[in-house]
């Protein structure tokens, strides 16, 4: 297994956010982390990338235990986290955002090649490379956030709600691009509220509710599950 969470709990102050979450992502696999707003999906990603301390459990990435590692060390292992709400560096140009994405030592020597790859996948970013990121549309900023994640040369790309706030057309484009990235061999951990869209992209998924994994399975099984259909698919 590339990534393994075993009984992970985390809280914000005294408010528990996730409890005993156990999930796995294989090498090159695309896995979904689904559920409603506030279910603990973002907290799970933040726990993996070291932005939230664990109160219990363990996280291993390719055999390395991540507990108590600082976020900048975790990214050096090849875990890219594209945070919710895009969060590009607004006062920096598109190109500068991408360059900062390859700040880590693992990525810096490959910067020129990574830029070429990202501009190849997102031609729109190439057109706008001198533009300040904060002045772009939401869809363009989402592309930039994903592209910036790719600059790390990640083995695992974690995407937090990439469709949030995007028009349906832009959501389609974004999911196509994620598919394209996955086909290059990058493992994907996709957090989505848009469950039906997510299930078309990932092979397996976990469903979170109130900070706990309440269901897991292959995408096709989940899509046909009565509970999932009524709770998340509006069928």
């Amino acid at each position: 297994m590339l990534l393994e969470l075993d009984g992970v709990s985390a809280s914000y102050g005294s408010v528990p956010a996730i409890g005993r979450v156990s999930i796995m992502v294989g090498e090159g696999e695309a896995v979904g982390l689904l559920g409603a707003n506030g279910a603990g999906k973002s907290t799970t990603l933040r726990a993996i990338s070291g932005l939230v301390r664990l109160s219990a459990g363990s996280i291993t990435f390719d055999g390395t235990r991540l507990a108590a590692m600082a976020p900048h060390k975790i990214s050096e292992l090849g875990i890219a986290h594209v945070p919710e709400g895009r969060q590009v560096f607004p006062e920096m140009s598109v190109q500068e955002n991408l360059e900062v994405g390859s700040y880590a030592p693992r990525a810096k020597p490959e910067r020129a090649r990574s830029l070429e790859l990202v501009y190849g996948i997102f031609p729109r970013l190439a057109e706008r490379r001198r533009q300040l990121a904060g002045t772009m549309s939401g869809g363009e900023q989402q592309m930039l956030a994903v592209g910036r994640g790719l600059m790390l040369k990640p083995r695992l790309l974690m995407l937090d709600e990439p469709s949030l706030g995007l028009a349906p057309v832009m959501t389609d484009v974004t999911f196509e691009k994620i598919q394209e990235i996955h086909k290059l061999g990058t493992a994907i951990l996709l957090v989505e509220q848009n469950v039906s869209r997510a299930l078309t992209l990932v092979a397996r998924a976990y469903v979170l509710e109130s900070g706990r994994v309440i269901m897991q399975g292959k995408s096709a099984e989940l899509a046909n599950n009565k509970d999932v259909q009524t709770a998340y698919l509006g069928i």
Binding site: L51, S75, E76, P90, M92, Y103
Partner: peptide, 17 residues
């Protein structure tokens, strides 16, 4: 650039290494 990035969004800068 890392300093400017950290000034604009510290958490995300950490995610960049």
């Amino acid at each position: 650039k890392a300093m400017r990035a950290a000034a604009q969004n510290r958490d995300v800068a950490m995610l960049m290494g």
